[in-house]
Design a protein around this nucleic acid. Structure first.
Lengths: 137, 137
DNA sequence: ATGGTTGCAAACAATTTGCACCAAA
DNA sequence: TTTGGTGCAAATTGTTTGCAACCAT
């Protein structure tokens, strides 16, 4: 994926392209994996107040520009919405690896389609937990 | 699933079968769906201090008796570990429905097996987000 | 007897909110 | 000029911890 024009992307989604939000998206791009709000706020400490980071993350996540990810910790992580994928988390060292598989995605859609009370399902998260090779010695 | 003997279950996993923990498991059994720590602590207010609820939940979850579930809120939920299944969450009213599908589970295993850095994967979570029929009018 | 468990209080961490001000469109 | 976005501070909410006492085994 090419680095997108973040300002244009924001305007496209009806947001104002403020320097802070552009910096936020750039930081997520740089990170290239889920980052905690605290770490992100620290990175952006020159550009954005922590409360504003929270507000921006929520707004951008509900517009689909970014994605909220749960890694089993007691605080949220976010990442740029790129190619659809999921995560494997090492419960020992916290390391995260991406996984993707088209065939599985189809099955996930089927699974969701079985619901009786839900007709519209617009997203899903999948997380695997295990130990990476470093921690499994 | 039959209602288990919680005291015996606890001892089996090398825990002490205290009245509080038995009450906790009974409460999760009653609830029959993911419950927030706060709601659980409120239910158990006569049996267990909130801090103890947190400690018990963590211990029981890492032994596999119960399961921690992320519903996209900013606090944890737990449920009894029963038949393996996942959840669809209504992002409007918060309602939760269970989903399960053996075929999909096989594919999830395949997906996880593709990892390069992870050999041992012991659990996974899947959550779908959408709107239930009530909220989708 | 003894080590896991608990209550209570306090500390800590994560997230949200009110409000006046600012700046992008 | 209008309204979304921001900083700052304070309030909330969620979670963890220390320690002495307790009780299930």
């Amino acid at each position: 994926m090419q680095k997108p024009g973040f300002a244009a992307l924001l305007r496209e989604k009806k947001f104002k392209a403020t320097p802070g939000r552009v910096a936020l998206l750039a930081a997520l791009w740089e990170e290239a994996k889920p980052i905690s709000v605290q770490a992100l706020a620290h990175t952006l400490r020159k550009s954005m107040d922590e409360a504003t980071v929270y507000r921006a993350l929520e707004a951008l996540a509900s517009s689909g520009i970014i994605r909220r990810v749960d890694l089993g910790h007691s605080h949220a992580h976010y990442e740029l919405e790129r190619v659809h994928h999921h995560h494997i988390i090492c419960t020992s060292c916290g390391d995260v690896e991406d996984v993707e598989d088209i065939a599985t995605e189809k099955h996930l859609e089927n699974m969701a389609a079985r619901s009786k009370r839900f007709r519209s399902i617009y997203s899903h998260n999948v997380e695997f937990f295990g130990n990476c090779q470093n921690c499994n010695k």
